[in-house]
Design a protein around this nucleic acid. Structure first.
Length: 752
DNA sequence: TGATAAGGCGCC
DNA sequence: AAAGGGCGCCTTATCA
């Protein structure tokens, strides 16, 4: 006899019920579409059908169950979505939250999730995490907990942090210096604060879960939470962190940043749930609650609890980090292990780069800011005269109204491309449009790059090896509430980033890194020839695109070739190419290439893209087909270094954006995997073992470091030669040469 | 007032 | 109908 199951689903989604049934083969499912007012009623309805299990696809009952489970909950504040995968027991019924069903039709991630979550009912062996066993650590129990932790098989760590305002008395300068410099800094006390005040980031609490084996071989865990209020607490934190047991954290880069400040490094940090899920299911979300929902058959969403009981919340984080890692290790496939092995180690150079940061010449920073502020002031005055007092060029809404008001009706947005079109359309537009452009650029410079909270005169940041789908590093502001991301610094800021006293700055930049990868991955003969040519890459492209001799390639033609190459690489359509090139450039290109006078702008752009396809037919032809084929048949994309991406989407000509992201993946991923190999090796040998240099950052195809002048030549040779090691791509040896720049006193000096 | 979405834009 | 890849940060506008 079929097992009974009840499905609570809103009447609006009732049609999708059949989709849900597919995930429960062998079950007889009765759908209930009426809104029940109480959990007890839902349980009663379930039991009346003879079922003991219910699946919940509607937000209404989800919220009732959440409230039933946690009476403190403010139902208005929660989203039912975050409870997906939760299992509630109430009145003798097991309720599994599955969530909304309407996207099941085409959303592969939802399909995968439903399959996974359904097993919490269909598979009696679905693992359930042990019950949380936790205590606040205090003088009566901490030493015993420490003794037990000594024999832990695995130990998770999680910290809670806070920003505290600093008494200004402690920020006074004596003899030109403040003795607490580097502990506090001028920053924003809340995420939305407008004014900088002296603040200090601190650890308020650290939690540990230890994994132990009992006499009869069972795995059990215990969790201890330590409030950090005194120096004694810090000493205990140092001792726990220094224990032999392998550590696991959820994105431990965060913890590591704080531990560095407390001189409390976590020893044997070998496991990371965040980096592990990045290695395995990179396209899925990676927050701890979501990860836990995948592995714990008894999971209940807990992230709303932080405000009620921070210590218990912290304990749950630790507990779930530990047990998630245990189950990841028992379930992930070999290729994910290989990914992890290749990528987890990048955490360490990333951490040292971010906590050391970049020294900033603050006199230069101020000079650059004041320069821009004057420009803004001048241009705003002119704009107010031309438009109206109070006109704000940073308001897209105001600018759009202005464009429409001046008769430029076709504007749909006010971005760069539209603004360029606007400027080209009328002499008056030209004046106003350029003023808008200028003010935006200057304000961007001021707000994003010249008004930065610095830590003791340094820009701090994070580099995150688990932050992107392709394996590139992601970058953002420091976890210490200062700095900003380091990978999008414009050229005009680079004069304010300087080497530390006694050091010089250096960089090694992989030349045409992604284009080389595209050439070798697609095996396009023409593109391989172009990237290997000793001549200028974009001029060479232009000869192939436009059938001209190398000597005939003028700068405007080279620029056209560059843009066409760029556009085709990302599989642009003619319309978008027109937008990015701008009308003027397209008209000019048509004239330079003697294209028929009667062609429209789109015709010209289509022709230009066709030039790329004629020159390099295997890129958008053969290679794209192969990518589609690989994803459709294996659900994965495997790169030349072995890095493998699990793909959930379906690429096709009809699904252009998905196709674009998958065809862009290969070269972007391979390029960064190649440079990261050298980044790690150089960091380990030259920085950690030999103390001969200090890395500043990796910017996708660029490594930046500082060293003492007497070590520059040998370090540069060490790094440059290894960056240029061959990689086998589809049976061919690919070498990416690099440009070395050495001996700079500022970052700007490393640029041409 | 604080949170969020959308628009815009910096880099490779 | 048409769709440029990968990121993070800042501003404006809006809403509760």
């Amino acid at each position: 006899m079929a097992k009974q199951l009840v499905m609570f689903i809103s009447k609006f989604e009732a049609n999708y019920g059949s989709r849900v049934r597919e995930y429960f083969p062998g079950y007889s499912i009765k759908a209930i579409t009426e809104q029940v007012s109480m959990v007890a009623l839902a349980a009663d309805l379930t039991k009346r059908t003879g079922a003991q299990d219910a699946i919940v696809c509607c937000a209404h009952l989800t919220k009732l169950l959440a409230k039933y489970h946690d009476k403190m909950l403010d139902v208005k504040k929660i989203s039912a979505h975050s409870y997906r995968g939760s299992v509630f027991y109430a009145f003798g019924v097991k309720f599994l939250i599955l969530g909304t069903t309407q996207f099941l039709v085409y959303n592969k991630q939802d399909q995968w999730l439903f399959r996974r979550y359904a097993q919490k009912i269909t598979n009696p062996n679905f693992p359930v995490f042990p019950e949380l066993d936790w205590r606040v650590l205090n003088p009566t129990n901490i030493d015993q907990f420490y003794e037990e932790a000594k024999s832990a098989l695995l130990m998770s760590i999680d910290i809670e942090t806070a920003i505290r305002k600093v008494n200004p008395a402690y920020t006074q300068m004596t003899e030109g210096r403040n003795k607490f410099s580097g502990m506090w800094f001028m920053g924003y006390p809340t995420a939305t604060a407008k004014k900088m005040v002296p603040i200090i980031p601190i650890i308020t609490m650290v939690g540990y879960t230890i994994l132990l084996r009992t006499h009869d071989g069972k795995l059990v865990s215990k969790t201890g939470v330590l409030y950090i209020n005194s120096m004694i607490d810090i000493v205990y934190m140092r001792r726990f962190n220094a224990l032999e047991a392998p550590k696991v954290m959820q994105n431990g880069g965060y913890e590591a940043t704080y531990f560095a400040r407390y001189n409390a490094p976590a020893r044997n940090y070998l496991y990371d749930t965040y980096i592990a899920m990045h290695a395995w299911l990179v396209e899925l979300s990676r927050d701890l609650a979501f990860i836990t929902s995948l592995f714990d058959g008894g999971y209940i969403y807990w992230k709303q609890e932080a405000e009620h009981n921070l210590a218990e919340y912290n304990a749950k984080d630790c507990h779930n980090t530990l047990w998630s890692m245990v189950h990841i290790i028992s379930q992930w496939p070999q290729w994910a292990v290989d990914n992890y092995t290749e990528n987890f180690r990048m955490q360490f150079p990333c951490i040292t780069c971010g906590i050391e940061g970049f020294a900033v010449n603050q006199t230069e920073m101020t000079r650059l800011r004041v320069e821009r502020e004057k420009l803004v002031e001048k241009n705003i005055k002119r704009l107010e005269k031309l438009v109206c007092v109070g006109f704000n060029p940073n308001s897209s809404q105001q600018v759009l109204k202005l464009m429409h008001g001046l008769g430029f009706k076709k504007a749909k947005s006010t971005d760069k491309a539209t603004l360029a079109d606007f400027i080209d359309s009328h002499p008056l537009y030209d004046i106003i449009g350029n003023l808008i452009k200028e003010v935006r650029k200057d304000r961007k410079a001021i707000s994003t790059y010249f008004t930065l909270p610095l830590m003791d005169g340094r820009l701090l940041y994070e580099l995150n090896p688990g932050g992107t789908d392709t394996g590139r590093l992601a970058s953002k502001a420091s976890n210490l509430w200062c700095g900003t991301q380091i990978q999008n610094q414009p050229l005009y800021t680079k004069s304010m980033y300087v080497a530390d006293p006694g050091y010089v700055l250096n960089s090694a930049d992989n030349a045409q890194s992604e284009s080389r990868c595209t050439a070798y991955m697609s095996e396009d003969a023409g593109l391989m020839e172009a990237v290997e040519s000793p001549l200028d890459f974009h001029k060479t492209n232009s000869t192939k695109f436009f059938g001209l001799k190398y000597e005939e390639i003028t700068k405007p033609i080279r620029d056209t070739g560059k843009k066409v190459n760029h556009g085709a690489n990302y599989n642009m359509g003619a319309r978008v190419l027109l937008q990015t090139m701008g009308r003027k450039a397209v008209v000019q290109a048509a004239r330079l290439l003697n294209l028929p006078r009667n062609w429209g702008l789109i015709d010209i752009c289509e022709y230009l893209l066709q030039c790329f396809d004629n020159a390099y037919p295997d890129v958008r032809g053969k290679y794209y087909k192969e990518v589609i084929q690989e994803v459709m048949s294996t659900g994965m994309l495997k790169g030349a270094t072995g890095w493998t991406r699990r793909c959930f989407e379906v690429p096709s000509k009809e699904n252009k954006l998905v196709l674009n992201s998958y065809v862009a993946h290969g070269p972007q991923s391979l390029s960064v995997k190649i440079i990261n190999k050298t980044f790690f090796e150089a960091w380990l040998y030259l920085q950690i073992e030999k103390s001969l240099l200090r890395f500043k950052a990796q910017v996708h195809d660029d490594l930046i470091w500082q060293d003492k002048p007497e070590h520059t030549a040998s370090n540069a040779e060490w790094i440059s030669s290894r960056m240029a090691r061959p990689t086998t791509v589809r049976g061919r040896e690919m070498v990416i040469p690099n440009d070395l720049k050495t001996g700079g006193s500022t970052w700007l000096e490393l640029k041409d």
